[in-house]
Structures are given as structure tokens and as C-alpha cells.
Write a protein that binds this DNA or RNA. Structure first.
Lengths: 186, 186
DNA sequence: GTTTCTCTGTACCATTTGGTACAGAGTCTC
DNA sequence: GAGACTCTGTACCAAATGGTACAGAGAAAC
């Protein structure tokens, strides 16, 4: 049989897209098969655990990407203001100004949450903590840093909801700009 | 056969809960039947259009509730500051400080959006416009009123995502308090 | 009491679901 | 070339899916 020369890693973006578009429940194996171009045989070869394992792999990859591209830079970028500005820019790029949604946010809302509760919770905790750290470095007091960090991540998630609901990317950018300004205002 | 003396209106909260917990796709007729205590026969008697009609009825009821309890008061409460404070309070009560999620926000995220796109979009537009109106009355300029209104609704939606993901109601209240303060600060 | 209308449970339907089994084709190693 | 290993398509499975058909029970109207 013809081989598709597919690396497991190359599959993850495809899988992520399906889960993002249809949710965990709505992403049937038929859809996944169609999106990846792989039959069930191949899918179960790469992911013996089935859909659950596919979703876990996707979430793990997203987590890894955010850790290296968002969370770590927030701590290591020398100038705190730069760190924060970069974070908002990278976030806007990643989510394509709201055209792409946050899979972890989506999964946190529906009953799928229970399946991946730990991973979802940690993702947001890490994000909040990393931003809080940068805000402290910027000069905010502990209380304000924590509140601002939580509000900023909430703003990002809410912006994604609004941008999708209104089908309007400007909304996303407006909210992010406002949140960024709040962070940088001492 | 024994009658359950059920009014169609009494069914909607039950249906809403199922859709909220499992999403549109995940809410199977079996789950709906269990939650409402009605067999398929009764369900299809009340909702000949099936699941789609059930969801539409739920969304319509939510829309009606928000119109009378949130949107209209935002315009008609004499003192703008009171209108805004009341809105945040009513919102927190409705969503039980983040323990209950926003069905329209959830549906906006997954592919279910296409099914109810119009309704979802209008819901958020109405909310934003009503809040914007109150912010104008409070003394914000047009630009600021619009930006603040959008950011506030985003904050609420994001707070719901975070509260669920972190399983922490304090997070919800923190974000809402911050948003309310931003609205009331001229 | 009869008729009518509203409601309800059961049985059924085709389709799709996630998942398994397995033979075989490609590729690599020796 | 033999053998092992990786990958892939097909066929199959039991269970669940949304939806339909329908007989009959309860209550209300006459």
C-alpha cells in the first residue's frame, strides 16, 4: 500500500484544526480521517488510544509551543515592557487576530473539560504566573500584578469569544490593545 | 399514559443546562431525555424540529431574559453609574460567579456557530450597544465608550472561560470587579 | 358517554459512532 | 532475496445517534 510518508508531528496541526472547528465531541473519526487524509488504520497506528490520545497529543504540542514562545520569553526578556508587548503581539499572531480560537479555552467550557482538566488548568496557571512575573518586574505591586495578569488572560480569551461571535477581527485587536495598555500603565 | 404536566416553558431550563454542560453536539437525545424526564415522544411533540428547535428555543429564552434583565435596564436606569453597577451584579448572579457558562459564548466557539450565527452575533451586539449607551451617559466620549463596552463584555466572557478552566470562582469576581472599575473611572 | 385533542411510551429505522482485526504493500536491514 | 518492521486500506463490530410511526392513556368539551 502507498505510504503517505507522514510524520506524527505533521499530523498534529491537522488534528488541532479539526478539534478547534468541531470540538472534541463533534470531531468524529470520519472528519479526522478526511482532514488528515489518513484512514482509521493509520490513525490508530499513530494513536492507539484513539481520539483521546489524539487530543492529548494536540494539547501537549500547544502547551509546548506556548511554553517556549510565550511563557518563557515573558520571564527571560530583559526589559519587562518589551516582554509584555511581545507577548500580546505573539498572542495576536498565534490566534490570527481571533480567527483561530483557543482550543484549551474551548475544551474548558464544555464537558470535555473533565477529560483534560489538569492540562487545561495548568495552561492557564502558567500563563497567568508568567505574565504576573513580568508585571512585577515592570513595577506593579504584587496585588496589582496578579489582578492585571488574570484580567489580561481573561481579556484575551473573551476577545476570542467575541471575535468569533461577531465575526470581526477588529474586536479582537481592540480588546488586546486595551489590555496591553492597562498592563503598561503604572 | 401518565401525564407529566409539563409546560414547554418549564423544559427550557433543563434543556439549557444540558446544552451548557455538553455543547450542542454532545447533548444527545438520550441525555436530554434523561435530564428532562421526557421520552422522545414528548420531546418531539413539543419540538417537532428536534434538537435544533430545542436549542433555538433555549437561545430565544436566554435572549429574552437578557433583554429584559440586562440590556433594557442599562438604558432605562436613570443614573448611568447605577445602571452599570447593576449590570455587573446581575451578570455575576446569572452566571453564578462563573460556575454557569454562557451558552451563546460556547456555541459561538465551536462549529455550532454556523447554525445559530445570527442569534449569537445579535446577542453580543445588543449587549455591547446597551453598555456603550450607559457609558456615554456616564460621560465617556464615543470612542472610549465603545472600546470600554467591548472590553467589558470580553472580560465577562473571558472570566467565564478562566473560572471554568481554573475551577475557581474568585477569578471570575476579580475580573468583573476590574472591568467594572474601568467602566466607572472617567 | 362519546368525541377530541394533548401528551407519552415503545418499538422501530437507517446512519454514524468509536474501535478492532487483519492482510498486505512499502521500506529497510542483513 | 529473506525477514522484520512500519504503515495503510478494507471490512467488520456493537453501540449509540437523530428521527419517525403509532397506539393508547388522560383530560377536557360537548
Amino acid at each position: 500500500m502507498a505510504r503517505a510518508i507522514t510524520e506524527k508531528a505533521d499530523l498534529l496541526p491537522c488534528l488541532a484544526e479539526v478539534f478547534r472547528d468541531y470540538g472534541y465531541e463533534g470531531a468524529s473519526l470520519a472528519l479526522i480521517s478526511q482532514a488528515t487524509g489518513l484512514g482509521k488504520g493509520s490513525l490508530y497506528h499513530f494513536f492507539p488510544g484513539g481520539k483521546q490520545e489524539m487530543a492529548e497529543a494536540v494539547l501537549a504540542e500547544i502547551d509546548a509551543w506556548f511554553t517556549t514562545s510565550i511563557f518563557t520569553p515573558l520571564r527571560t526578556t530583559p526589559k519587562a515592557a518589551h516582554a509584555i508587548t511581545n507577548m500580546f503581539a505573539a498572542t495576536a499572531t498565534y490566534f490570527q487576530s481571533g480567527q483561530k480560537i483557543c482550543l484549551l479555552g474551548l475544551m474548558g467550557l464544555s464537558e470535555t473539560r473533565d477529560r483534560f482538566a489538569e492540562r487545561i488548568s495548568l495552561y492557564f496557571q502558567h500563563w497567568i504566573t508568567a505574565l504576573q512575573n513580568a508585571l512585577l518586574r515592570l513595577g506593579h505591586n504584587a496585588q496589582k500584578a496578579r489582578t492585571l495578569a488574570i484580567s489580561s488572560i481573561a481579556a484575551i480569551q473573551g476577545a476570542l469569544v467575541l471575535a468569533r461571535a461577531l465575526n470581526h477581527t477588529d474586536t479582537f485587536n481592540t480588546v488586546l490593545a486595551q489590555a496591553e495598555q492597562a498592563c503598561l500603565t503604572l
